[in-house]
Design a protein around this nucleic acid. Structure first.
Lengths: 136, 136
DNA sequence: GTCTTATTGGGAATCGTTCCCATTATGGCA
DNA sequence: TGCCATAATGGGAACGATTCCCAATAAGAC
């Protein structure tokens, strides 16, 4: 995948606020959640705007998305666009996430896909569980 | 995970119809899709019922679910409850799915989780791509 | 400072899914 | 074989997340 070419964007308070909100935690958070937090902090921002920025972050490779089994999308900042491709070990309860790498998985996925004649492949690998804190 | 203990269920036409609809294809299909197909075939069934049965199949281990990146849930019959744990290589366009196994992935997932103090672990591994037919 | 235009945000609209509940029909039993 | 208790059904309302629309606002270039 070619390094995402970033379009010219205007710097706005709202954009910064959303990024900060994400940066403040190492957990995957939903748009609604981020929105609520920002409003609670007295930030003046609309829900649409939160969604917009989250999507921009993902498009720019600044954030990762995880679609929870219940269908909700959660976001988390993940280094910059140059960060290596990785996956996550996510706590089902608190959303805390650990970045993990599995080179073997990558090659396995590509091989399997190729063997079956599939092209333009990508994959999702997420491990869900209970973190030590939440297990107590 | 203990083999799902199946509760007593009544056999109904609708239940059978949903199962047949799924059995007719080796692709992951959405509830809405299955519903539309059944209605098109003149089947008398409600949307709620389709959802209900799909969920039952999943609970009974008869079907697998995949949450598409766009949030829609898709279902597919996958042998019976005794079938080995497996994953899927899914065509992004037509939904055609190939069952794949990756023993290495399983052990890797468990190991990584354990190393980070996570318990009660499960994982999602889905490979999306374009099948040979759709690539043309 | 002014002007162009990207950005914003609030509310309506969408979409998938779940819920509610009166009606229907299955399966056990007499 | 008929009856009954109750599981299953289905249609529409309710829901929650997300997207859309568009007039008002504000960033940044000159």
């Amino acid at each position: 995948m070619a390094p995402t070419q970033q379009v010219k964007r205007r710097a706005t308070n709202q954009g910064a606020a959303v990024k900060e909100a994400l940066a403040a935690e190492d957990t995957f958070r939903s748009a609604q959640d981020v929105y609520a937090t920002l409003r609670a902090n007295g930030e003046k921002i609309g829900l649409s705007t939160v969604y917009r920025h989250l999507q921009i972050f993902v498009a720019d490779g600044l954030a990762d998305v995880i679609h929870k089994p219940d269908g909700e999308s959660t976001y988390r900042l993940c280094g910059d666009a140059s960060t290596t491709h990785h996956h996550h070990l996510v706590c089902r309860t608190c959303g805390k996430a650990v970045e993990i790498e599995g080179p073997a998985v990558e090659t396995w996925a590509d091989k399997v896909a190729a063997q079956n004649g599939f092209t333009d492949v990508n994959h999702t690998v997420e491990i869900f569980g209970l973190c030590a804190a939440c297990a107590a």
